[in-house]
């Protein structure tokens, strides 16, 4: 009898473990089975390469949204990565233990704040500031990039800090012994040694930024056009879904929005894959 429950529980544990596999398969099957036929119906080139998005007139080109997502993400990376890495360096190598006890929970809290609150904050604070400085609506690539840079900070800091801590102490000591200052040792021996770990953090940050929805939708301006400057309003793929899903009628409009999510999903899968490849190489 006892033997029996042992094996039964073993299989229950095993079955639970397969749930995440099943979940990924089910997500792929349902999204792809809705998305790919729609993309085929609209035409791959018309959908991915089309520059006009006018659902009511039958134009379903998401190229401006793809460009919008990439621009906003790139902006977030340009602004957020240097600050994130430097902050991680500070936390790993410069921070007195007492300050660390405050800094670490602060960074964790930055990760815990809901994206809707970030969006609201940006709408109330960053948008008016941008209006004052540059005129116009204050919503656009730059505004969204600044907010996303803040939002990806904890991701980059977390991964980069653990990458820095994983570098053997002997690297640092060796550099000190050769007469380098503390700062030089950290920046010219530890940082290069932790390079691929830090890169993995950046990739993870890219994934966060490109998938962010609620924070972006209020501050990016949402015009489905190809942007001509960093102040121009853009619509990201995520915003496209949220903005129109509510009123999209059954049929091709709604399916085109689901197909937008599929394109985003494929982007994320590629980003995830490069992240895990990079991490595997580290181990």
């Amino acid at each position: 009898m006892k033997k029996y429950s042992e094996t039964a529980m073993k299989y229950i544990f095993m079955a639970s473990a397969t749930v995440s596999i099943i979940a990924v398969v089910v997500i792929c099957v349902f999204l792809f089975s809705k998305g790919f036929p729609t993309i085929a119906e609209i035409g791959v080139f018309n959908f991915l390469g089309g520059t006009v998005w006018k659902p009511l007139e039958g134009h379903f080109g998401i190229f401006p949204m793809i460009v919008g997502s990439i621009y906003v993400t790139a902006g977030a990376i340009i602004l957020g990565v240097p600050i994130g890495i430097l902050c991680a360096v500070f936390m790993a190598r410069f921070c007195p233990p007492k300050l660390y006890k405050i800094l670490k929970p602060a960074v964790d809290l930055l990760a815990g704040i809901p994206s809707i609150v970030y969006g609201f904050f940006a709408l109330m604070v960053i948008v008016p500031v941008m209006q004052d400085i540059f005129g116009g609506s204050g919503k656009g690539i730059l505004t969204a990039s600044i907010l996303l840079a803040i939002m990806i900070l904890p991701t980059i800091i977390g991964v980069a800090e653990s990458a820095l801590r994983a570098v053997p102490e002997s690297y640092y000591e060796g550099s000190l012994a050769l007469g380098a200052t503390h700062e030089r040792s950290v920046f010219f021996t530890l940082l290069p040694a932790a390079k691929s770990g830090i890169l993995a953090g950046v990739i993870l940050g890219i994934g966060r930024a490109i998938g962010e929805t609620m924070a972006v939708v209020y501050i990016a301006g949402n015009q489905p056009i190809l942007p001509d400057s960093i102040l121009s309003g853009v619509r990201t793929m995520t915003a496209n879904i949220v903005l129109e899903m509510g009123y999209a009628a059954d049929g091709i409009h709604r399916n085109a929005l689901i197909a937008t999510a599929v394109v985003l999903f494929v982007f994320i899968l590629i980003i995830n894959l490069s992240f895990s490849l990079l991490r595997r190489r580290n181990d």
Partner: peptide, 8 residues
């Protein structure tokens, strides 16, 4: 799973 954005 942990990398999939919430909108997806």
């Amino acid at each position: 799973l942990s990398g999939i954005p919430s909108i997806v």
